[in-house]
Amino acid sequence: MKKMFISIIVVVAIIVAGIYSVKHFYETKANEIADKTEQYLINHPNKKKEEIKEVKGLNSKGGDYGVLVRVVYKDTPNIHHFYKQVDGKIVYDGNEDISKAKEPVL
């Protein structure tokens, strides 16, 4: 009985560790891709770091590792620009004007 209890505890611990590891992996990848996107914007389209308000990696279905990066510029805070990494390259994925977003109907 004691061996079975210990076995269950070990299995549960392995499952919890696995879930944590996967979550940590994707959070790390989201941060890495967000940093890479910021460097891309500063170096290629010649944006200045001071013009960027926010760069955040989000879980998504598109792009490498399922990461979509939201970029908000200080001069247009209501427009969210989206980038993703595809085969190691940063590509623009469109934008959304959140000032035109509709309130959800309940």
Rank of each mutant, 00 (worst) to 15 (best):
V11I: 14
N31F: 01
D97A: 07
K56L: 09
A13K: 02
D35Y: 14
A17P: 07
K49M: 12
S99L: 13
A101G: 10
M1S: 07
R70T: 04
E54I: 06
Y40W: 11
V86S: 09
N31M: 05
V67P: 09
K48L: 10
A17F: 09
E50F: 03
Y83C: 02
Y73W: 10
K47D: 06
L106K: 14
G66D: 05
S7I: 02
M1I: 00
L68G: 01
K47L: 10
E50D: 14
V69Y: 00
S21G: 15
E27S: 12
K89F: 00
F82R: 01
G62M: 15
I90C: 02
H81A: 05
I6Q: 07
E38T: 06
L58G: 05
E32T: 12
V105T: 13
P104E: 01
H80G: 06
G18A: 11
K2T: 08
Y92T: 08
V91W: 08
K84A: 09
A101H: 11
L106W: 13
A13C: 08
L58Q: 11
L106H: 12
K102E: 15
K29T: 08
K84Q: 12
Y20S: 14
D87A: 06
G88L: 08
Y92P: 06
H81T: 04
K48A: 12
I14S: 14
I42S: 05
T37W: 06
F5K: 09
S99M: 13
Y73I: 03
L68K: 14
N78G: 11
P104S: 00
T76H: 13
D64H: 04
G57L: 01
S21K: 11
F82G: 02
N46W: 04
I8W: 00
I14R: 06
G62K: 15
G88Q: 11
P77I: 01
K56T: 11
M4L: 14
K48F: 11
T76M: 10
E32C: 03
E50H: 04
E54F: 06
A17H: 05
Q85E: 15
V91S: 07
I52V: 05
G63Q: 06
M1F: 08
S60L: 01
I52N: 04
I79P: 07
V91P: 11
G94Q: 01
D93W: 13
G66V: 07
E50I: 07
A17T: 08
I52R: 01
I52T: 02
I98E: 01
D75I: 03
A30E: 02
P77S: 03
N31L: 06
S21D: 09
N43C: 00
V71F: 02
K49V: 10
N46H: 15
K47G: 00
N59M: 12
M1Q: 07
L68W: 07
Y92H: 07
M4G: 02
S21T: 15
E96C: 05
D97V: 05
D93N: 14
